[in-house]
Design a protein around this nucleic acid. Structure first.
Lengths: 209, 209
DNA sequence: GTTTGTTAGTGTACCTGAAACACTAACAGG
DNA sequence: CCTGTTAGTGTTTCAGGTACACTAACAAAC
């Protein structure tokens, strides 16, 4: 007996910080904006396919990426059904990454019309990200190489959609073992300079909290 | 351009309570025990495929089921690669469900040798289940229609692998809105009878805790 | 019928971690 | 030197979780 074969695709919700807000990277396609992604080939596994599509379509490499959920009937409006493995990725803010070759960043609160179910995928990804903020150090994946605690707090507030107490926030993140002072100061703006921190083990997300 | 087609399969980790312990349902296959599951057909979506395989292979219907993760290279030992969408299901204990036509229950601590990566899938499913116990009412999906708080506590302890304080446990679960007294008593054993409870909305899992 | 063994059922004190809260410091620009 | 703006710092309060011991009800054995 021959196994049934199906088209399998990957779709990636790429999050970044733009203009002080959480943003999603979309590509122009078929008269509509759409999530990066595409079909999985024979020679690659689904994780590799997602990384490849990201690199080819957006130029992004070495970003943090996690699997989100696997949907079916994603392309219900087309004749062909597709098994869609979805992922979300986080790119550092203010880095060269945010100036990608193709695609455009949209504030997560103001997305354009998307193909079937993609809006739901973005929503789910955002929920997952917000949940992880509460019990992990995942927000550091959205940070540039050097960052101030003020910016880190702003990112948290942006993703969670709520204001946080400065002192309580600093207490919490300074207890994390995975960030450390650089010794340098951010000298910008007409105000007191802020200490610059960096991540000790980039790419690793600790579950501690 | 023609889309690449791939074999897609579903695999289900079926949890139940047997002999006072957490157990997994396995099927005899190719000289090895194996998780229920199989290929996804054209006419069904992946969720439907998982339900169908469960029904056909084990006789289980109307069980609680959640998607776990999607793997690739699952059948790396075979020539053909497969995209494997994995799920976990919970069946009520002491119900007729636990006497399934085919398959056998194995204590989760003492599983036989399994095909490539399936042991890892079971482990992941168990982690997920344990995590959900802490912030949801999911354990009720493992309960028979009427149950005592003593048994509910035993199920929690079984899954978590730790002992729980009786008074604190009762305080917590009695605050759940989704269980209620039946008014009946469990008259079994040489000891004081216990009150029997039931779920108010079977099948629903509340995130409240 | 009294004793024994076993599980059911109940309330309070303590402790830890989260939340609330206001002022001084350092810089640039006017 | 005054103003505006962000950086940086401790303590008190509150709530939720944890620890903890006895009485109640039944069946079986004696």
């Amino acid at each position: 007996m021959r196994a049934t074969l199906l088209p399998v695709s990957v779709h990636i919700v790429v999050f970044g910080i733009r203009c002080e807000g959480l943003a999603v990277l979309l590509l122009p396609r078929a008269e509509m904006w759409s999530l990066p992604g595409g079909g999985v080939e024979d020679a690659e596994d689904i994780h590799g396919a997602a990384l490849r599509q990201l690199a080819v379509q957006t130029g992004l490499r070495d970003v943090y990426m996690e699997q989100l959920y696997t949907f079916d009937h994603l392309d219900a409006d087309t004749v062909q059904r597709t098994v869609a493995v979805t992922w979300y990725a986080l790119v550092p803010s203010a880095s060269s990454f945010t100036k990608t070759a193709a695609g455009e960043w949209f504030a997560v609160e103001a997305l354009p019309a998307l193909p079937a179910e993609q809006a739901g995928i973005v929503h789910l990804a955002r929920q997952r990200l917000a949940a992880k903020l509460e019990y992990s150090t995942i927000a550091l994946q959205l940070m540039p190489e050097r960052f101030t605690l003020g910016v880190l707090q702003a990112v948290h507030e942006t993703v969670l959609g709520t204001a946080l107490d400065k002192r309580n926030f600093r207490k919490r993140v300074l207890a994390w073992a995975c960030i450390e002072e650089t010794g340098e100061m951010a000298r910008e703006g007409h105000h007191r300079p802020a200490r610059l921190y960096r991540v000790t083990r980039p790419g690793s997300v600790e579950i501690i909290k």
